[in-house]
């Protein structure tokens, strides 16, 4: 059995997450992926914002940074630009990354900076008590949408893709083994990588919307997921309300920090020539 404990700060357990929360499944998939790649703990810098999922950084034995709401990607950008040898992984949620932090999210994707963003999408603000988020489906209830959400919701993966990310993938906590493989590819990808994980919040979202238990919500994930290969031959109407899973974008594009290094190298090269 895989030794999760070697990556955890055991004295910080138990986790703050509710019973039935999907966040722990993402945590474990992430640790398995990191172990499989064989990264040293010192090489990893994990950065998070504010929210349930962002509390993850307190539990893992890496260089960890728990930042302000919505701004994790900006801190991560500073770290990556200053010390490119670090593997910088951002842990964030749907509200953190696409509401208050939406601007940073699209600009990091545009720069194609080498960050791995693991975005926990539970369609709700869990920590603050179940308020409506940019990914709450239309019509669903939240503590600030008591008559049902009247707004349209974001396609988070589509947003990263349109903004220029070199790797975009979606999975669910039901598909934990697929999720692990996707995270592994995302970390290894040189460039901005987004992994959108559909996860359940039975406490703040499930109860209010009569979605049943955590198991029922994961069953829903299973039944409504369509692999990207199959989705290609389906109509828009058939895909309505479905979760398209798998790797959506895997492109070779110039990476931001590497491009900047070329500018630095111009001067280093000049100096060497002069010395010769």
């Amino acid at each position: 059995m895989f030794d999760y404990e070697s990556y955890l700060r055991k004295d910080k357990l138990p986790l703050i997450w509710c019973a039935g929360c999907g966040d722990g499944i993402v945590l474990k998939a992430m640790l398995r992926a990191i172990h499989k790649i064989g990264l040293e703990k010192d090489e990893i810098c994990m950065v998070s914002g504010i929210g349930c999922s962002s509390r993850l950084t307190g539990y893992v034995d890496f260089n960890t940074l728990h930042t302000t709401h919505g701004r994790a990607i900006t801190f991560a950008t500073g770290i990556k630009m200053a010390k490119p040898e670090l593997h910088v992984i951002v842990v964030t949620g749907d509200g953190d990354a696409t509401a208050i932090g939406g601007n940073h999210y699209i600009h990091a994707a545009r720069r194609n900076i080498d960050l791995t963003v693991i975005l926990f999408n539970n369609s709700i603000y869990g920590m603050t008590g179940g308020q409506v988020s940019p990914t709450t489906p239309k019509g669903k209830r939240a503590s600030t949408a008591p008559y049902g959400n009247f707004e349209n919701n974001f396609n988070i993966s589509g947003l990263a893709q349109a903004a220029g990310a070199s790797f975009v993938a979606r999975s669910t906590v039901y598909h934990a083994t697929q999720l692990e493989k996707i995270i592994e590819k995302a970390i290894l990808k040189k460039g901005f990588s987004l992994v959108e994980v559909i996860t359940q919040c039975p406490t703040m979202y499930g109860r209010r919307n009569r979605e049943g238990t955590a198991v029922d919500m994961m069953q829903w994930q299973k039944e409504n997921s369509i692999p990207v290969s199959r989705a290609a031959s389906m109509s828009e109407a058939e895909l309505e309300g479905k979760i398209i899973t798998g790797i959506l974008v895997d492109a070779e594009k110039p990476e931001c920090r590497a491009e900047y290094q070329k500018i630095i190298d111009r001067f280093t090269a000049t100096t060497e020539t002069v010395e010769k």
């Binding site: 940074l65 701004r71 500073g78 630009m81």
Partner: peptide
Amino acid sequence: GAIIGASL
């Protein structure tokens, strides 16, 4: 945010 990250 970026300058705090870089300083760390």
